[in-house]
Write a protein that binds this DNA or RNA. Structure first.
Length: 516
RNA sequence: GCGCCCGUAGCUCAAUGGAUAGAGCAACAGAUUUCUAAUCUGUCGGCUAGAGGUUCGAAUCCUCUCGGGCGCGCCA
């Protein structure tokens, strides 16, 4: 919230001092309290560009900014060491945040974005040939939260799951199921997991539908619903795959060899050329995927986001180069790569293999540690980093899990509010809120919109969990030192803390219990 | 071999090129006659895998080495 205010002030101050307006500076919270509530490095950046003394610029900027601060949001704005400009917020401004939070309620933290684009977010898209694994769970949670973040920052978002119900693997599934039922060994390249025995349905499509429904149920257990389930076979049935191959052919980026139609991807930076149509006339997955993304853009979306597992990362350039050739704006097509989860039971690595059937499913993990903890755990790390997930630890420590720490803060506040029988007065004098613990809490609360904005921009779900833990910690610390009941101003502060905690948990898709 | 991702405290992870690299868990020592102890306070713990480079400033950017994950199908 304050960052936008500071950025606006800088927007006025920079031209006043004849400084460039396109500087790549940042506004952040400095590491030490004595350095202020916020700081900017704009003078350092400007000095580098102009070959000037950063300290001199910082001093001029500080004076100019203070002059522009008509609403007296800041007590001091001053230059510091190499050339930072430090900002100190007034207590009055921070107290005003409480009123603001109560006014906004569930909308507190949401911000209107000027971007306002229609976004299609595709994620999970697991093959319908088996249960979801723990990696799917991680990517699913990431996608679901990113969707919430984008909606909260003014985007119109639709989520989609692409069902690969065409191809060799779905035939293998049916063969495997039938073999198992007949008491015969499944083929070498078939699916040997224990779940094969439980697949229902007579036809191949019924089996796929059965497994898809299991996947849907698992996702629903995590609170994840998709706006659209897109079936690959529709692309084929509607001739959209054939059309794409024709288009590429017309563009002169294909060639025939060994009876197959190839895409000249090597000319476009790929390691080798790729087959679009097989020798037997069936299109490859690649051809269908080009058609799929062509279709996405044609459905009127301004921006596409995919979350792909790391096992598909080698595929990114191939697909983008094809879409580029087709004239699509690939700068508005973003692919987030989700790294895998290594599952441990204690210190022992659990190998995940559908083939051997030795795998822990996502459903089992949810059953063991609960949806809230599962979501929080998966959200708590950068989806692009490897994650070592110890099931024993997650179970054993369930009471010390960070998710309970955050939830507990919420429950504690609900208890206080319940216990303070007096109705809150309308115009509470908040000016007494100026002790360090109170100030720390107010300051933390007012950063929430900035957290939402940055989490959305960077697609970082773990910023939300980090913030949740931090806010809970600041609250618990405040609670230890400041008695609330009987103090209307503190009660208002606590009420706005509850709203913020609730909204954090809401964004994470984790429940906010009123008692624990 | 080539490509992408990663390597930060004993463990799991943070840190939009910024100021003295932070949390949780584990370990140790304390705190409650009063609003939820699923809490709080303190201590211990680091040459950010290693070596160079870029600059006012590097965990972050570049090069190389080592180590790990994942790719490199007319599978999806």
């Amino acid at each position: 919230m304050s960052k936008a205010i500071i950025a606006a002030l800088l927007g006025k101050a920079l031209p006043e001092l004849d400084l460039p307006g396109d500087l790549d500076f940042v506004v952040n919270i400095p590491p030490q309290p004595h350095l202020g509530d916020y700081a900017t490095n704009v003078s350092l950046i400007a000095a580098k560009r102009l070959g000037r003394n950063p300290w001199q610029i910082a001093e001029q900027l500080a004076a100019s900014l203070k002059n522009l601060d008509k609403n007296n949001i800041f007590t001091r704005i001053e230059a510091a060491k190499p050339g930072f400009v430090n900002f100190f917020l007034t207590d009055t401004y921070l107290q005003g945040i409480i009123t603001e939070i109560e006014k906004q309620g569930d909308d507190w933290g949401k911000i209107k974005s000027t971007i306002g684009t229609k976004v299609l977010l595709e994620f999970v898209s697991a093959n319908p040939t088996g249960p979801l694994h723990i990696g799917h769970g991680r990517w699913a949670v990431a996608g679901d939260i990113i969707a919430r973040l984008l909606k909260a920052t003014g985007h119109e978002v639709k989520t989609e799951f692409y069902i690969n119900n065409v191809g060799n693997q779905v035939e293998k599934l049916a063969v495997s199921v039938r073999a198992r039922r007949a008491g015969e060994p499944v083929p070498e390249d078939g699916y040997g997991g224990a779940y094969i025995a439980d697949v229902k349905g007579e036809t191949r499509d019924e089996m796929l539908e059965n497994l898809l429904n299991q996947q849907k149920a698992t996702l629903l257990a995590l609170g994840i619903k998709f706006d659209n389930w897109f079936r690959e076979n529709d692309l084929h049935d509607q001739g959209k795959v054939a059309l794409i191959v024709t288009k590429l052919n017309d563009l002169g980026v294909t060639f025939n060899e060994e009876g197959a139609i190839w895409f000249k991807s090597q000319e476009l930076g790929d390691d080798k050329n790729r087959v679009l149509m097989r020798e037997d006339g069936r299109p490859t997955y690649f051809a269908a995927d080009i058609a799929y993304h062509f279709d996405k853009f044609n459905r009127g979306y301004d921006y596409l986001i995919n979350i792909w597992g790391t096992d598909h990362h080698g595929y990114v350039n191939r697909l983008k180069s094809a879409l580029k050739v087709l004239g699509l704006p690939i700068e508005r097509f973003e692919i987030i790569i989700g790294q895998l989860v290594s599952l441990y039971r204690g210190k022992e690595l659990v190998r995940m293999s559908k083939r051997t059937g030795d795998m822990v499913t996502l459903q089992e993990v949810i059953d063991e540690i609960g949806a809230d903890a599962t979501r929080f755990f998966f959200a708590a790390t950068d989806v692009n980093s490897h994650l070592d997930f110890d099931l024993e630890l997650a179970k054993k420590q369930s009471n010390e899990n960070p998710v309970y720490y955050v939830q507990y803060a919420h429950a504690r506040i609900c208890s206080i509010i319940k216990k303070s029988a007096e109705r809150r007065a309308q115009n509470i004098d908040l000016s007494s809120l100026n002790h360090p613990e109170e100030r720390a809490l107010m300051f933390k609360l007012q950063t929430w919109p900035d957290i939402v904005f940055e989490s959305a921009r960077l697609r970082h779900t773990h910023r939300l969990t980090e913030y949740g833990k931090e806010l809970a910690a600041v609250f618990h610390s405040f609670y230890e030192k400041c008695r609330v009941i009987g103090n209307p101003a503190r009660l208002a502060l606590v009420a706005s803390s509850r709203i913020t905690l609730h909204n954090i948990l809401q964004m994470l898709g984790v429940s906010a219990p009123e008692s624990m």
